[in-house]
Design a protein around this nucleic acid. Structure first.
Lengths: 336, 336
DNA sequence: GCCAGAAATGACAGCGCTGTCAATTAGCAT
DNA sequence: ATGCTAATTGACAGCGCTGTCATTTCTGGC
């Protein structure tokens, strides 16, 4: 009933092992036999059994997508990444497992061990902050499991995909400066995330380039959530000299800023300009629509996965690609 | 290096087959041996190989989560469901594959066939509108793959989880009526979704209960997206006798209504009351916060999966559970 | 105390592939 | 042609488990 590798072999007149070689794209197969075998596979609609391949061989054709369940409230971001990863998996007949980790509380290392021991995963895709969790990376390396990262902090060693967030953040703030703002607040993301650092640095860069002093009072801690944006904004509103514009390190917090502005009776953008980062769907759903930086999450998930697969299939070392950003200027920013 | 079933057998002094029986919770094992074996498994940290189990046996311990990629813009909803499904999988040592289908365009049946043929999936979890796609359901049945549904239209045959959406919708509209609204608009969801029907019916029920006539002009088509909510709301605003309240069939569209209200200079809730359905994170991030119906998506994903697993493990027939709704009254609704 | 039948256990093959290593064939210089 | 290395192919075992069916060990009833 099921077409097996052996059936293809018989139909082609070669040994099962040769069919296996074709299936695995091994080099030492004569071009003519390869063609014959591929044709037979196609014609017989042969589909290799992942279970058998996993059991017999060293590869499982399975990758895992890892993310941190505690620190990732922006579910739309993850969902888009996941879509991109699935796209890439489809293209190369890999399967994907989803594995939420909890850096705090549960032991992520045990999860990894289980994933490797049980499923023999071939590789992993990670999102921040896992991308920079040293014990995790070390363990993956010990297991010999290659991984691709999305927006990793360490750009020298990782493969995957990133964006020049610092430059992008600088561009956003420059946009505010060009509008004439002099006092610009910034809401930080979670401390150990690369995104927080780069976006802060871009903010500083823009001020420096404009010859404006950096005022620590204008920079408050957030944690990438809507709620933290609300709280941070309230803090900024209490300042003696209230900022005329706020650059939040992501859209969720920017939404929080706008909410807090409403709460206080401030009009955006008349009384306050707001910008965010990521261009999540939320950005265009807010009133007024949010000026932000577009980050092509889905594409990034796909590209990172493709790099991982290049490596898994021995097609190259795997690179850290850089995707371009684009500034989305909308109605939440205006002259002070 | 790897602890195998055989190792556990040797350590316990029984045959591998008996260990296998314990592993699979088969009935005919003496209690004393079961205990011994379980203790050895625990002590040796034995982890069965899914690949070997899948290859040798008829079960794969894999379930697939199916959703429609075209018609599901509310990614937070899916993400929450997915989290719940993963929770349940964890609890019973199942693995989950994610498989986006495209009802329109790509052929979903081929996807299912591939999933069954390649991975021998034991069961599937589906979200609307897949839950009511007849060809898909038929094919799954032909393959003998049990499935659990989240909010299926056909409540008689399905297993999984649902909510009394009609009653919930009625409650929302009654809330508006109690505030004193007489002209209440409704924005429909995608036509063939159960959610659209039930929510419309609840709307009608509430009007009827209050002795108000049903005015078709106040009901406009939407498609569950933010954008469709904006367009639908613009249409309602053009009416000669503009409604004083709008009940949108989900939060995304309700957000669209509020956006359109802003666009037109209408104040919510002073000039217009708005309510939605689902209580997505968006609901509390809008200004003013949205009155809506809380749907416990994550819990629903988990419960549906648990029902599926009961069936897979022969623990019962699998039920269609009903979860309670709860009305979330916030600031987007007020007296007209 | 013996036997039928049920309960519990075991022996063994084989799921569908790939790793290892041996065997064959092709390619090339002599 | 001949011998040699390199390219290509094949034989065979076995990955870690479960299905089938045979076997052993308990039961209780007489």
């Amino acid at each position: 009933m099921r077409v097996r590798l052996e059936d293809v072999a018989r139909a082609t007149g070669v040994s099962p092992k040769t069919v296996s070689r074709v299936l695995n794209e091994e080099p030492s197969v004569k071009e003519s036999t390869r063609k014959k075998v591929l044709a037979a596979m196609e014609q017989m609609n042969y589909r290799p059994s992942p279970a058998a391949r996993g059991l017999a061989g060293s590869r499982s054709f399975l990758i895992a997508m890892l993310y941190d369940n505690n620190e990732n409230p922006a579910s739309t971001y993850l969902a888009e990444i996941q879509d991109g990863v699935l796209d890439a998996c489809d293209a190369h007949r890999y399967s994907m497992m989803v594995s939420p980790l909890r850096l705090r509380g549960h032991d992520p290392i045990r999860r990894i061990d289980a994933l490797v021991a049980d499923h023999h995963i071939d590789g992993v895709i990670m999102t921040p902050p896992l991308t920079d969790h040293a014990p995790l990376l070390r363990r993956l390396q010990e297991h010999g499991v290659p991984c691709a990262s999305i927006s990793p902090l360490q750009r020298e060693v990782a493969i995957g995909v990133c964006m020049d967030e610092q430059q992008a953040a600088k561009a956003v703030v420059q946009h505010l400066l060009e509008l004439g703002h002099k006092r610009i607040g910034h809401i930080l993301g979670i401390a150990n995330h690369g995104a927080s650092r780069w976006r802060l640095q871009g903010y500083k860069d823009a001020l420096a380039a404009a010859g404006l002093p950096f005022d620590p009072a204008l920079v408050v801690q957030g944690e990438f959530t809507f709620g933290s944006g609300v709280i941070a904004a309230r803090g900024l509103f209490e300042l003696a000299r209230r900022p005329t514009a706020i650059f939040a390190a992501n859209d969720d917090m920017a939404a929080g800023v706008m909410w807090a502005a409403n709460e206080r009776g401030l009009k955006v953008p008349k009384d306050l300009s707001v910008c965010g980062f990521d261009d999540t769907p939320l950005a265009t759903q807010l009133w007024p629509p949010l000026t932000t930086v577009r980050q092509p999450s889905r594409e990034m998930g796909k590209l990172a996965t493709l790099q991982l697969m290049d490596k898994l299939r021995g097609r190259g070392p795997g690179l850290l690609l850089q995707v371009p950003y684009s500034l989305q200027i909308r109605e939440s920013t205006a002259k002070p």
